[in-house]
Design a protein around this nucleic acid. Structure first.
Length: 287
DNA sequence: AGGGGGACCTGTGCGC
DNA sequence: TGCGCACAGGTCCCCC
């Protein structure tokens, strides 16, 4: 489920529980997720303090006092939840309202101050690894990533260069994390809709006015979603996990057959499959 | 070299 | 009610 905005929301929810505190125990309930956990992972994390939690694209980076970084990716179904006795950490799940099935709690962090953080992942497409902090350029997952959508580096000039000569559809190109990092199926569909660009158009043909529109729309769609997550975080202090993250509604994603939301457009939202994944779009508004 | 398709997993919702 | 199938917000890896 998580694209960049959801991962950022999770980061903000986890930060007060972890930052400046010691992890007293890290317990693994199985040897692997998508990949085996790194050698002696539990020993390397237990007893360390978390100095900060960073995010790059859809990866969470827990900076440990040992000089190592714990990298976590949530795959499709990964989720963190917090139980807390203290007042600093809000309990809850940050993305999901439904309780997680404890059978899929694969990693448990006990943190000083009476905080427990669980990583739950039914499909186990997530993964975790440890690396020496500062060696990011040697970590394959991070080394290949393109710019963050809201960074200065992500500009019209950059996009033109990155898409030059690309025959693949723009939809597919925007899912390529080496072109732009952090977009997933939902926000690519939403950004192309807002920019009025057909998902089937070749990437190389997105130039001129289309590229000028696409860059700010990608930024906006991501920043709005982060804001929606952030306001949810602020609101649910007393709600105990009932976050309602997806009160943030999508304009086309998951809306096949519904009326196109553009005022005055009488077309319906269509669905097609590209590279094996659903694309939602309006054939009238997106050219 | 780049791009498509399968693989990795479990859960859910739908039609019959 | 039960069963089978399609589909799910991601990424890696193989093969053409």
């Amino acid at each position: 489920m998580p694209e960049l905005p959801e991962v950022e929301t999770v980061r903000r929810g986890l930060a007060p529980a972890f930052e400046g505190r010691r992890i007293t125990a890290c317990t693994l309930h199985r040897p692997d997720l998508r990949f085996p956990f790194p050698d002696k992972m539990s020993e390397r994390i237990s007893g360390q303090s978390v100095e900060r939690i960073d995010r790059r694209s859809k990866y969470l980076l827990f900076r440990l006092s040992s000089g190592e970084t714990l990298l976590a990716h949530l795959g499709m179904s990964g989720r963190f939840s917090v139980e807390a006795d203290d007042t600093r950490s809000q309990p809850g799940d940050f993305v999901h309202a439904e309780p997680a099935n404890p059978a899929h709690d694969h990693v448990v962090f006990d943190i000083e101050g009476g905080v427990t953080v669980r990583y739950n992942d039914p499909r186990r497409f997530g993964f975790m690894t440890l690396f020496e902090t500062g060696a990011e350029e040697h970590v394959s997952y991070l080394a290949v990533l393109g710019p963050e959508p809201h960074s200065n580096e992500f500009s019209v000039a950059y996009l033109n260069e990155a898409l030059k000569g690309k025959k693949s559809p723009i939809k597919t190109a925007l899912l390529d994390q080496s072109i732009i990092a952090g977009l997933g199926n939902i926000y690519v569909c939403e950004a192309l809709f807002r920019a009025g660009i057909s998902p089937r158009r070749t990437a190389a043909s997105v130039v001129g006015a289309r590229a000028e529109r696409l860059v700010p729309h990608i930024r906006d769609v991501i920043l709005e979603a982060i804001d929606a997550g952030g306001s949810s975080l602020r609101d649910f202090a007393s709600a105990d996990g009932a976050l309602g993250y997806f009160q943030h509604r999508f304009r086309v994603y998951g809306r096949e057959g519904e009326a196109c939301p553009t005022p005055g457009c009488d077309s319906k939202v269509k669905r097609l499959v590209q590279s094996g994944r659903s694309t939602f779009y309006c054939g009238q508004c997106q050219k």
